[in-house]
Design a protein around this nucleic acid. Structure first.
Lengths: 227, 227
DNA sequence: GTAGCAAAAAATGAATTCAAATAACCTTCA
DNA sequence: TGAAGGTTATTTGAATTCATTTTTTGCTAC
């Protein structure tokens, strides 16, 4: 029935069709190709991914369990629109996870991993001085990624990735809306973090990261409500 | 084809078959009805739940994404057996989540919620004095549940529940194996926690809970490796 | 012109069907 | 007796089919 070529070469298959399309579908949603609360007809997705409805629906169930989409009985899938309360809750959770990552990183990271974070920090600071927000944002993301990598905890990493996916859209919006004062404050917080990491002060790192995310949350809420 | 009655009355349907069987299937796995690494033939589960393979497989995919089971391509589902490293990682994550719950509870809990926790604490202490481990364990679980409820954060609650499911088996084993010294220590930690909650000292509560879970982890690892 | 209802069209939920891969079994030969 | 190979049976992966629900469309009545 399906003569079209799949977009993914058959060489790099992930075992099952379901495992193949899940990352693609997740990326499609996270990337923001569908408006908030927008409906996603199964038929279109099937054609897009070149699979039948069975594996597609399995993937949708997984995305729903991750909180990325909503599955209303008999009424299809919608991308989950986040209320202000939900955004706040997700940020608090993210703050807790970052705090944990900071703690574990202090305990477990290698000298090389610290050096890498320090280097990223310097690069990010330069972007800040130049007023280069995209560059700053990119380095910032990488620092947090490096932190989770240094924490060396797979379940933590997975949980954080999932949360990150759910927050990506609003997070990006927040970055754009970030005002100069908050930006300056964020840079200062990053300096404190680097110092705590250097001293392997796990409690301090946790506290700094928690409050850092808390303030980011406040900035996002302020920006988001002023829509 | 299927004339048998479903075990669940049709009155309390969850909209779709998938939503109906997912909790049942999860309970079945968590309860420990299948040995570690044991295979789960789809056919049997279908008969047990009274559904066809389609909704069952959707549910299995979700359980796999929750980390409760493993889905090997063309080789079916197995309950995920946890290595010592994985157990340690899950406990560290749980410690971070409990710490967060403590923090948020300090910020948000009502007087009634605190009173309830205090009451549970008293009950638990009595069980401790009597040497009633099951009673202690039960109250202990309820205290932690009450803590997460007081934290009032849905994503946190969900994440913790999922983790709890993954750890339930080993956690129960740990409780049985817990020695007297560790038990005494745990009770002391709970007293400190209650005090921190009373003072609404979020940082203290977080620190106490984190270390509490860390020590539980150590006890579990010690017990588990001595199998 | 609009509100309400009916019928048709479309989309979803789930069982069945078909194909491919794995596992079990049985024969054969050393 | 035991191992190797091939054949059958079982199990899984995925497409198709069928039934049910929702949504849309169009008609009628007011």
């Amino acid at each position: 029935m399906n003569d079209e070529q799949t977009l993914v070469p058959p060489t790099e298959r992930g075992g099952t069709l379901h495992n193949e399309i899940l990352p693609q579908l997740r990326a499609f949603v996270v990337e923001g190709n569908v408006p908030d609360g927008g409906r996603i007809p199964e038929r279109e997705l099937c054609e897009m991914l070149g699979v039948s409805r069975t594996p597609l629906r399995e993937a949708l169930k997984v995305l729903a369990s991750e909180g990325l989409i909503e599955l209303l009985p008999n009424r299809g899938a919608r991308v989950k629109a986040l209320s202000a309360v939900e955004i706040a809750e997700l940020f608090d959770l993210m703050a807790g996870l970052e705090a944990l990552a900071g703690r574990l990183a202090c305990e477990k990271m290698t000298a090389e991993q610290f050096d890498r974070i320090e280097e990223l920090h310097r690069s990010m600071y330069l972007h800040y001085l130049r007023g280069d927000r995209p560059g700053y944002f990119s380095d910032n993301q990488e620092i947090h990624s490096a932190l989770f990598a240094a924490a060396d905890n797979q379940p933590l990493f997975e949980t954080a990735r999932s949360l990150q996916d759910r927050l990506r859209r609003v997070r990006y919006a927040a970055n754009l809306g970030e005002n100069g004062e908050r930006w300056k404050e964020a840079v200062r917080e990053h300096e404190l973090l680097l110092d705590a990491l250097r001293r392997r002060a796990s409690g301090d790192a946790a506290e700094i990261l928690f409050n850092h995310l808390r303030r980011t949350k406040a900035a996002v809420i302020a920006y988001d409500s002023g829509n």
